[in-house]
Measured scan of single mutants.
Amino acid sequence: MPGGGPEMDDYMETLKDEEDALWENVECNRHMLSRYINPAKLTPYLRQCKVIDEQDEDEVLNAPMLPSKINRAGRLLDILHTKGQRGYVVFLESLEFYYPELYKLVTGKEPTRRFSTIVVEEGHEGLTHFLMNEVIKLQQQMKAKDLQRCELLARLRQLEDEKKQMTLTRVELLTFQERYYKMKEERDSYNDELVKVKDDNYNLAMRYAQLSEEKNMAVMRSRDLQLEIDQLKHRLNKMEEECKLERNQSLKLKNDIENRPKKEQVLELERENEMLKTKNQELQSIIQAGKRSLPDSDKAILDILEHDRKEALEDRQELVNRIYNLQEEARQAEELRDKYLEEKEDLELKCSTLGKDCEMYKHRMNTVMLQLEEVERERDQAFHSRDEAQTQYSQCLIEKDKYRKQIRELEEKNDEMRIEMVRREACIVNLESKLRRLSKDSNNLDQSLPRNLPVTIISQDFGDASPRTNGQEADDSSTSEESPEDSKYFLPYHPPQRRMNLKGIQLQRAKS
């Protein structure tokens, strides 16, 4: 015994090295194993092979420090690593049964499904019991997946119906949107047309105001020219009257000059006056001389005659003075006559000038009245044309509004008919989907599995289990394997941990 101590140590070291070499393959693929292994699927088989106990299973599945599946799978690998070579062998058998691809990844061999460990530990009855539990578990999982698949199909059909409904609603909204954009385009076109009409109206108003201003300026210029013409006519008439007055005065002077006595007659009258003065002096001298030589009687007679002569001279002087006064009065009367005649001529000139001015103003008033009548006639014609244009424009607008209203009513009726057609199509689609759903539900009910399987069917299934373990590994792997896509769409199922009653199965096998 003492001599065998070193050999035992060498043997233990060799086993430990082999164990480390075995687990080295697992550690190399630890990331892939932790990512894809579900500990809840492996722990029943590991407990059946007595590699882990209930406490280890509870620690792996329910520990609060292991929230994710990767953490739980890593903890399970750590626990199996502590179990040595047996933990490695049982772990590979569980991978061979549940995850053939991972088994091939770790060992590089094809899975054979021999279950040597569980046969050694529990015997064939334990293997049968384990396989029966796994089959029931798989059936329950398949039923749950079928239910989930039916629910998802129903949800899918519902979503398809909602999608069709949303599509129809979208078509309806597109119809309304198209109608909205069309009405918006019509409104924009009408606004552009309105702005264009306003611009045209403004341009016409500006043109009309400009023409009116030009016409008023032309009328004012015409009036100024007419006033200048009238003033020139007035000056012409005044000059004609002055010329006529000057002509009359010149004719009067000419007549006075023609009626003036001649120079010879004046000289002859002056000679006669001198001769008479000479004779008068001679007679006076004779009379003076006679007075001195005459007697007293003759002197008395001469005195009487002288007195008579003096009286006659006085009378004559009075007559001469009277004649002079009369001549002066006649001259003054002639001057007054000439003055009055001049005033008369001036008044006649003024009267004729005023008459011509009156005629001029009368003509001017007639011209202004004619212009006013023409302006009123043009204004009435413009008003009439404007009223006709406004009436025609309003009539066109009324007809346009009428046609637009008819078009809008027809478009609304068309839209309502399209919407009604879309709604009826939606109703038809809904009815078809309901009919299809009812038909599929009836087919699913016919094809669904019963909840409680008979014992004979279970025994028959387990009677055929042994050949399947040898020759149909691919079928078992397809039913027991969970793909990543299934984990996305289906909830994980945790079967209840219970042991099955095998009395009925044993009785059935005894009868057979």
Rank of each mutant, 00 (worst) to 15 (best):
residue 4 G to L: 12
residue 4 G to W: 12
residue 4 G to S: 13
residue 4 G to V: 11
residue 4 G to N: 09
residue 4 G to I: 13
residue 4 G to T: 12
residue 5 G to D: 15
residue 5 G to S: 11
residue 5 G to A: 11
residue 6 P to L: 12
residue 6 P to Q: 14
residue 6 P to V: 12
residue 6 P to W: 13
residue 7 E to K: 11
residue 7 E to A: 12
residue 8 M to L: 14
residue 8 M to I: 13
residue 8 M to W: 10
residue 8 M to T: 11
residue 9 D to M: 13
residue 9 D to H: 13
residue 10 D to Y: 11
residue 10 D to P: 14
residue 10 D to E: 14
residue 10 D to C: 11
residue 11 Y to A: 15
residue 12 M to D: 13
residue 12 M to N: 05
residue 12 M to K: 14
residue 13 E to L: 13
residue 13 E to T: 14
residue 13 E to C: 12
residue 13 E to A: 10
residue 14 T to P: 10
residue 14 T to Q: 06
residue 15 L to D: 12
residue 15 L to G: 10
residue 15 L to Y: 11
residue 15 L to V: 09
residue 15 L to T: 13
residue 16 K to T: 08
residue 16 K to V: 09
residue 16 K to L: 13
residue 16 K to C: 07
residue 17 D to E: 10
residue 18 E to V: 15
residue 18 E to Q: 09
residue 19 E to N: 11
residue 19 E to P: 09
residue 20 D to P: 07
residue 20 D to K: 09
residue 20 D to N: 13
residue 21 A to E: 09
residue 21 A to T: 10
residue 21 A to F: 04
residue 24 E to M: 00
residue 24 E to S: 01
residue 24 E to Q: 07
residue 25 N to E: 14
residue 25 N to S: 11
residue 25 N to A: 11
residue 26 V to G: 01
residue 26 V to F: 00
residue 26 V to L: 03
residue 26 V to E: 07
residue 27 E to Y: 00
residue 28 C to G: 10
residue 28 C to F: 00
residue 28 C to I: 06
residue 29 N to R: 03
residue 30 R to D: 01
residue 30 R to T: 00
residue 31 H to C: 14
residue 31 H to M: 08
residue 31 H to K: 04
residue 31 H to I: 02
residue 32 M to G: 06
residue 32 M to V: 07
residue 33 L to Y: 01
residue 33 L to K: 01
residue 33 L to R: 01
residue 33 L to S: 01
residue 34 S to D: 01
residue 35 R to L: 04
residue 36 Y to S: 08
residue 38 N to M: 05
residue 38 N to Q: 09
residue 38 N to V: 01
residue 38 N to F: 08
residue 40 A to E: 03
residue 40 A to Q: 09
residue 41 K to Q: 05
residue 41 K to E: 06
residue 42 L to T: 07
residue 42 L to M: 11
residue 42 L to F: 06
residue 43 T to S: 03
residue 45 Y to D: 06
residue 45 Y to H: 10
residue 45 Y to K: 09
residue 45 Y to F: 10
residue 45 Y to A: 08
residue 45 Y to C: 06
residue 45 Y to V: 09
residue 46 L to H: 05
residue 46 L to P: 07
residue 46 L to S: 09
residue 47 R to C: 08
residue 47 R to T: 07
residue 47 R to N: 09
residue 48 Q to W: 07
residue 48 Q to S: 11
residue 49 C to G: 11
residue 49 C to L: 10
residue 49 C to N: 15
residue 49 C to E: 15
residue 49 C to W: 15
residue 50 K to Y: 12
residue 50 K to V: 08
residue 50 K to D: 12
residue 50 K to I: 14
residue 50 K to A: 12
residue 50 K to M: 11
residue 51 V to T: 09
residue 51 V to R: 06
residue 51 V to E: 07
residue 52 I to C: 09
residue 52 I to Q: 07
residue 52 I to A: 06
residue 53 D to P: 05
residue 53 D to V: 06
residue 53 D to G: 09
residue 54 E to I: 10
residue 54 E to D: 10
residue 55 Q to H: 10
residue 56 D to I: 13
residue 56 D to T: 04
residue 56 D to H: 07
residue 57 E to C: 05
residue 57 E to A: 03
residue 58 D to V: 06
residue 59 E to D: 03
residue 60 V to A: 01
residue 60 V to E: 05
residue 60 V to I: 14
residue 60 V to Y: 00
residue 61 L to R: 02
residue 61 L to D: 01
residue 61 L to M: 02
residue 61 L to T: 03
residue 62 N to Q: 06
residue 62 N to M: 03
residue 62 N to G: 02
residue 63 A to T: 05
residue 63 A to C: 08
residue 65 M to P: 03
residue 66 L to M: 03
residue 68 S to M: 09
residue 68 S to T: 12
residue 69 K to I: 05
residue 69 K to D: 02
residue 69 K to M: 06
residue 69 K to W: 04
residue 70 I to Q: 05
residue 71 N to G: 05
residue 72 R to A: 02
residue 73 A to C: 06
residue 75 R to P: 00
residue 76 L to M: 14
residue 76 L to Y: 04
residue 76 L to F: 01
residue 80 L to N: 03
residue 82 T to E: 03
residue 82 T to W: 02
residue 82 T to V: 10
residue 82 T to H: 11
residue 83 K to S: 08
residue 84 G to Y: 02
residue 84 G to N: 04
residue 85 Q to H: 13
residue 85 Q to T: 00
residue 85 Q to L: 07
residue 86 R to L: 05
residue 86 R to A: 15
residue 87 G to D: 00
residue 87 G to F: 03
residue 87 G to V: 03
residue 88 Y to T: 04
residue 88 Y to A: 00
residue 88 Y to E: 03
residue 88 Y to R: 06
residue 88 Y to K: 03
residue 89 V to E: 15
residue 90 V to C: 09
residue 91 F to S: 01
residue 91 F to W: 00
residue 91 F to Q: 00
residue 93 E to V: 11
residue 93 E to N: 06
residue 93 E to L: 03
residue 94 S to C: 15
residue 94 S to D: 00
residue 94 S to A: 11
residue 94 S to G: 12
residue 94 S to W: 01
residue 95 L to M: 14
residue 95 L to H: 13
residue 96 E to Q: 08
residue 96 E to A: 00
residue 96 E to I: 14
residue 97 F to S: 03
residue 98 Y to F: 10
residue 98 Y to K: 12
residue 99 Y to T: 00
residue 100 P to K: 00
residue 101 E to R: 00
residue 101 E to A: 04
residue 101 E to D: 03
residue 102 L to S: 00
residue 104 K to R: 00
residue 104 K to D: 15
residue 106 V to M: 05
residue 107 T to L: 00
residue 109 K to L: 06
residue 110 E to L: 14
residue 110 E to S: 03
residue 110 E to A: 04
residue 111 P to G: 00
residue 115 F to Y: 15
residue 115 F to I: 15
residue 116 S to R: 05
residue 118 I to K: 12
residue 118 I to E: 10
residue 119 V to G: 14
residue 119 V to R: 14
residue 121 E to Y: 03
residue 121 E to G: 14
residue 121 E to S: 05
residue 121 E to P: 11
residue 122 E to S: 10
residue 122 E to P: 15
residue 122 E to M: 02
residue 122 E to V: 05
residue 122 E to I: 06
residue 123 G to P: 15
residue 123 G to M: 15
residue 123 G to Y: 15
residue 124 H to M: 12
residue 124 H to Q: 12
residue 124 H to G: 15
residue 125 E to C: 11
residue 125 E to W: 14
residue 126 G to W: 15
residue 127 L to T: 14
residue 127 L to R: 05
residue 129 H to G: 10
residue 129 H to Q: 03
residue 131 L to T: 00
residue 131 L to W: 01
residue 132 M to H: 05
residue 133 N to H: 02
residue 134 E to F: 07
residue 134 E to K: 13
residue 135 V to I: 13
residue 136 I to K: 07
residue 136 I to Q: 14
residue 137 K to Y: 15
residue 137 K to I: 04
residue 137 K to C: 01
residue 137 K to R: 11
residue 137 K to D: 02
residue 137 K to W: 12
residue 138 L to E: 01
residue 139 Q to I: 15
residue 139 Q to K: 14
residue 139 Q to L: 12
residue 139 Q to C: 01
residue 140 Q to D: 08
residue 140 Q to H: 09
residue 140 Q to G: 10
residue 141 Q to N: 12
residue 141 Q to V: 09
residue 141 Q to R: 12
residue 142 M to I: 14
residue 142 M to E: 05
residue 142 M to K: 09
residue 143 K to N: 12
residue 143 K to D: 08
residue 143 K to R: 14
residue 143 K to M: 11
residue 144 A to V: 09
residue 144 A to F: 10
residue 144 A to P: 09
residue 145 K to M: 09
residue 145 K to E: 07
residue 146 D to T: 12
residue 146 D to R: 05
residue 146 D to W: 06
